[in-house]
Amino acid sequence: MKNEMLTVSEVSSRIEAGDVMVIAGDEALLAQLPKGAWIGGTTVYFVTETGGAVVRDRLFCTTISAATGATPRHLDVAGLPGISAGYKPGGVTMIMIPAFSVAHSQFAVDGQSYPGLFDQPLAGWITGVHLDEIGKRAPKVFDGTTGIGHDEGAVLLHVALPESVSIDLDILNIFARGDDAKLSFVFDESGFVAKTAMVNGERVNLAAYITENKIDTRLPLVANYAGALVNVSIQSADPETGEVKFYAPVVAGVEYRLANALGSYAQAFAQGAGDAGAGQYSCNCILNYLYGELEGQRTGGFTGPVTFGEIAYILLNQTLVRMDINENAA
């Protein structure tokens, strides 16, 4: 795979030549692209080869050079359970969903139950806008079949690959689960909002508990999902309404622990990434970008869009999703 920052003209030429592409950038640029084997989503935040940056005049493109074919499609909210219906045998599927949409919520809560969802690698992200434009502009996804932007539903790129290719989809999570029982939470209901939780065997008003104990909400809650540490980030805790809002849903009955504090966010990412990342697809979370002060900072060899949520089969937070397609596999 090849990752590049390109102009609209350069991207258009690649699309017209038949390249299979996953594209990120400003809505005004994506709207100019011709029809072809691509999907796109809005963001203006990126990690580039020189570090994190806001870029409005170019598009970040990942070209899947090993592809032998690709089918873009747009699904409305009702069609989300049919994501796997377009899977190509031995292939990979890329997905984008607009932030704050009904599809965002429904995929986050119900996605794990969609039939066949885990039958092949599914990677992608939640599209966004500049933080100053939240509530003023809607995040969009673009379907290369029509070139049209959508603020609802999901766009998918079902990619066919040769049998010799291997696919490695993984996450980089710099957070570890804490070991303090006072910071261990179990919820009665699944969802993006919670008012109460069981903490060390006692039911508490969650917003008040977070406020009174001066819990650092920049740290995510971390759960063990079948051996993988998965983050749920805290959006806000309001003692007046009693509501705690999350950027991804908590799951009822699962134990979450507040992540251990980091000495240096940026340094933790640099150490976690190491020298890896060149030539791989990746996306990183806007919370990592903000809390880790990644503007001007590199994350190893990883470059890609900074997003409002990451997808590696399920919705993730404060995580870097990476995927490598090895074209030299035996």
Rank of each mutant, 00 (worst) to 15 (best):
21 M>Y: 11
262 L>S: 04
280 Q>C: 11
276 A>Y: 04
58 R>F: 00
126 I>T: 00
130 H>V: 06
93 T>M: 13
313 Y>Q: 12
93 T>K: 07
49 E>Y: 06
71 T>L: 11
78 A>R: 13
11 V>H: 08
6 L>W: 08
207 A>Y: 08
47 V>K: 01
33 L>E: 00
116 G>F: 05
187 F>G: 06
270 A>C: 07
316 L>R: 03
293 E>M: 14
206 L>G: 02
10 E>I: 04
317 N>T: 05
217 T>K: 12
41 G>T: 08
257 R>F: 11
279 G>T: 08
92 V>Q: 09
244 V>T: 03
269 F>M: 15
194 A>E: 13
7 T>H: 08
67 A>G: 10
196 T>K: 02
111 G>D: 01
247 Y>P: 05
43 T>F: 01
177 R>E: 11
281 Y>L: 11
175 F>G: 04
156 L>N: 00
46 F>V: 11
123 A>Q: 05
277 G>K: 09
120 Q>S: 06
263 G>C: 11
110 D>S: 14
257 R>L: 10
303 T>H: 04
254 V>I: 13
269 F>C: 15
288 N>K: 01
29 L>P: 10
78 A>I: 00
279 G>K: 11
181 A>D: 15
208 A>Q: 14
190 S>I: 02
37 A>D: 05
244 V>K: 02
205 N>H: 12
15 I>V: 08
131 L>P: 13
212 E>C: 02
303 T>S: 14
60 F>A: 07
157 L>Q: 03
29 L>C: 04
265 Y>A: 14
312 A>T: 04
106 Q>A: 12
134 I>F: 00
139 P>N: 01
138 A>N: 10
226 A>P: 08
284 N>T: 04
254 V>F: 10
260 N>Y: 07
326 N>L: 09
166 S>Y: 11
310 E>Q: 02
223 A>C: 13
322 R>W: 02
326 N>V: 01
221 L>V: 06
271 Q>A: 15
21 M>G: 05
131 L>F: 07
6 L>I: 09
244 V>S: 05
34 P>G: 07
311 I>C: 09
182 K>D: 15
191 G>L: 08
60 F>V: 05
184 S>M: 01
179 D>W: 12
60 F>I: 00
41 G>D: 08
3 N>Q: 04
293 E>N: 15
312 A>C: 07
44 V>N: 03
201 G>I: 04
85 A>E: 14
95 I>N: 01
142 F>R: 02
9 S>G: 15
73 R>A: 13
168 D>V: 01
29 L>D: 14
36 G>Q: 04
